[in-house]
Design a protein around this nucleic acid. Structure first.
Lengths: 240, 240
DNA sequence: CAACAAGCTGCGGGTTTACGCAAGACGGCG
DNA sequence: CGCCGTCTTGCGTAAACCCGCAGCTTGTTG
């Protein structure tokens, strides 16, 4: 059995190395990559079916890498080992995991024990292991209670990218007014109206810009999500 | 000699512990904190004059912590040890370092040697040690070439927070038109006009929102900077 | 099938943005 | 002192944005 580790931080990488050795005696080879690009290449070359990787990496982040790896080989088992449980990451991962694939999401703050257990569950038992905290977010994000619809999330991304209403309408195949409807819905859910009725005109916000910041502060968006969205946008722009 | 380590990642913390031990035989006590708040408290209680800390921490980030520590005791020597050299961080640090204070900024990607050298230089020789890469940014940011003026940066933050032109004018004591002037200047420097003249009205951007994203993508802003700015904003709002 | 909720769309209008134009204000500098 | 560049401000306009109102299309449910 072969395990591929994709992680940028050398200390974390060697920690993972040890953890894999300790948890999986049946593992005879460990290979390592220090960024997403290298990870993809190694995964392809070694046809590796067992990967543990970080989400936040400078060169090419874990979500991107996982997406292409899974595209080529959906049965690959991937354990994401991340510092954060931002809704943006959770949503990003959920979006790309193939049907029935075994994967895991464990926070770096978890104990050694937990990590090792997750390694065995996923790689040996083909069972999904999602950190409790992450699962909470997932539920919230899928169920509609206090969570965001896909269409709301979509429009959030669009304004975050800086598109005009018209551009969004064109991109998503909607009318101008519908786009604006969704925006209102979004503003509502993000509760961006704060401090509006204060006096008369004192501290009014620019809703559009405010929404983006609030989303960032709430970790609904993060750098990596923006980066991905920007890439998709450029693609769309090129394809006219 | 006593050294305080403030760092949230346990692996990095113990690595630092070892590095300090190896580099500074004259150090007899090492204390550790795992977030900014605890770091501030320990610094105060122990009157520690030698600190090495991370910038990105969940609870209270390094810049906040450093600011209050330096406020109480400007002669404290602080070595920032960070994963990133985002312009937002560099600018944030530059903004708070007291006149003539000895401090350092070393990236986590630096070699053991470099870290140890920096520890000695700062704590023993009271000499500033700034990572080459970081220094580059500093220069660019201070010199005006391709860099951003303080007033440009200021307005960038204001629109990122989602303030209206009017609100910004009130906050900064300017006329509406001046605010808009600065915005134009900002849009110019960020080069937000891309894809405007394309066909006729195809892919136009909402400049205000686009500017924020471009700034984020270029690391001119980051989560921590937004967080700080938001706190300042709330303060201002409360003080009517 | 009727009834109802949810989403899309057009119309209309009040506000905010983006920005050209031009008249001061201030600070160097020869 | 007069010239010049930078910064500020007011006026005015076209576009974009926010949003209430109301007519339509769907899918759901009793």
């Amino acid at each position: 059995m072969k395990v591929l580790i994709v992680e940028d931080d050398p200390l974390h990488r060697s920690y993972l190395h040890e953890a894999v050795n300790a948890a999986l005696p049946e593992c005879d080879t460990i290979i390592e990559a220090e960024n997403g690009t290298a990870g993809e290449k190694l995964a392809r070359d070694h046809k590796s079916a067992h990967i543990v990787m970080d989400l936040q990496m400078a060169n090419r982040n874990g979500i991107e890498a996982a997406r292409t790896i899974w595209k080529e080989r959906p049965e690959t088992r991937i354990l994401f080992w991340s510092n954060y449980s931002d809704e943006a990451y959770v949503r990003g991962v959920s979006r790309i995991v193939p049907d029935g694939a075994a994967y895991g999401y464990v926070l770096k703050s978890a104990s050694d024990e937990r990590l090792k257990l997750a390694l065995r569950s996923i790689f040996i038992e083909s069972q999904c292991v999602i950190d409790r905290e992450v699962r909470g977010l997932q539920q919230k994000s899928l169920g509609q209670t206090n969570g965001f619809t896909d269409s709301e999330y979509e429009i959030l991304v669009d304004i975050a990218l800086g598109l005009t209403d018209r551009a969004i309408a064109k991109r998503r195949g909607l009318s101008l007014r519908s786009v604006q409807n969704r925006l209102q819905q979004l503003y509502d859910k993000l509760d961006v109206y704060q401090a509006a009725g204060d006096d008369h005109e004192d501290g009014r916000f620019n809703l559009r810009a405010r929404a983006v910041t609030v989303a960032l502060l709430r970790k609904l968006l993060n750098y990596s999500a923006l980066e991905r969205a920007e890439a998709e946008l450029q693609e769309w722009l090129d394809g006219k």
